[in-house]
Design a protein around this nucleic acid. Structure first.
Lengths: 239, 239
DNA sequence: TCAAGCGTATTGAATGATAAATAGCAGCTA
DNA sequence: TAGCTGCTATTTATCATTCAATACGCTTGA
């Protein structure tokens, strides 16, 4: 019998267990998952709990469930991978360089444009929030502390400043991407002052309402990391 | 008692009914929704059905449900608005120009970069698919038929050609955006040949592996529509 | 060989009962 | 009065059981 974690309620834990197992590829894409009855037995819970977990995973596009056919894993391209649970589950293991590259390729589309929108449309308090995050980055660097949290806040506050709900919704994606990146990019970013300068340029461009410059500054910021990853992928010969 | 549609099974219909009601703002953000028991009565279904619907909407980030507190609507920024159900529900009414603009602002980040990635990395069969869609656009224009489907296929096949799972996942978003746009942009696109030429330029750039040109061509394509919307918003004075 | 029909496995839905969680109130203490 | 503690009622959480609907695949009959 699989062991369930202690937090949350039973059906949420079931959801996490099953969801993780699916995204980690523990079930074959082709054949069915165990039936509801079998899952009840395996996890030692009632059918209600299993069914609620199945419903939640269906809502995330991971599985489908039909009478007499059982529970099937959906094709991966149908999964709602912008769902924060899915992002977390799929990255709890060891994210490959390939996934890291895919994150950066996405960020390089979103964030420069978000910065441009921020420069054009952001309300003052949103710009203030970006500046605050930048200041906290500076303090962390001076105090030799971990600067990841302020860094994440900086990028996310720009998404908010875009004043566009779709950009704002990329919050969890960006947070996850930055959390995942840390292990890799920390290796190269031996120059915290340079990093902060690059961030400051983005902020200044946004604060002064210069959309084009904000976009370019953010592009450079991310492109540097992307270039590094692509170079590393070439070196390894993977992909 | 609310009337449920006939398709699908009961809990899915409940999910749709409730979900639609929430995104359409029929419940106040602040106060709780009716209790499970009340929802059972209102919709004339069992608690099982209500609970499964609640679980599915929780999985989409729309609501949270806790003992003694009841069912609460989550802040809008936590909704998984890239979920295709949510996109559909929120656009079934009359999409405002503002939402239309937000869609285009997002597309202008995603699609040019997707085209650039496609030019660099697409496998031959993906490029073939783009070409096929373009050809079908041409045929539709010549035959004076509805060219929306081929148009959508064109844009989506470029997402696939990016060979990046996150871009591919924007499929439903892009499809929805294009479906929504039709009512507005059809007004201006009195020049189908010009539209097809613009699309052909994107295709040619991708097929010839010119990332920069692919990106610019796609940018122009979307920027034109965005410019139109922004102009219209100015004219109306809204926003 | 094939088509129609049937049995059966599996999910869908309802019901009733009990457990667990918690918001809010009452009362107690300093 | 302020703040803490514990009680209670309300609401969701979980379970067990039952019946219904559905569709796969076997059997049967021509």
């Amino acid at each position: 019998m699989a062991v369930l974690e202690r937090n949350n309620n039973l059906s949420q834990r079931m959801t996490q267990q099953l969801g993780r197992a699916i995204v980690c590829g523990e079930y074959s894409q082709n054949e069915s998952l165990p039936t509801e009855a079998e899952l009840c037995e395996q996890f030692g819970v009632s059918r209600t709990a299993v069914r609620e977990a199945v419903k939640m995973l269906s809502a995330k596009g991971l599985i489908s469930s039909r009478p007499r056919q059982g529970i099937r894993i959906m094709p991966e391209e149908d999964w709602n991978i912008f769902d924060s649970d899915l992002l977390r589950w799929s990255l709890e293991g060891n994210p490959s360089l390939k996934v890291l590259k895919e994150f950066l390729q996405m960020r390089i589309a979103i964030e420069p444009e978000a910065a441009a929108l921020a420069a054009r449309f952001a309300r003052p308090e949103r710009i203030q929030a970006i500046g605050d995050a930048l200041e906290r980055m500076r303090l962390a660097a001076e105090g030799d502390e971990d600067g990841l949290e302020p860094d994440i806040d900086f990028h996310i506050s720009i998404l908010y400043a875009s004043e566009n709900r779709f950009y704002i919704r990329m919050r969890d994606f960006t947070r996850t991407a930055l959390n995942v990146s840390i292990s890799h990019t920390n290796v190269i970013k031996g120059n915290p002052d340079g990093v902060i300068d690059d961030h400051a340029k983005v902020y200044q461009a946004i604060a002064s309402g210069n959309a084009e410059r904000a976009k370019n500054a953010m592009f450079l910021l991310i492109d540097e990391a992307l270039g590094f990853i692509e170079h590393e992928l070439d070196r390894i010969g993977e992909m």
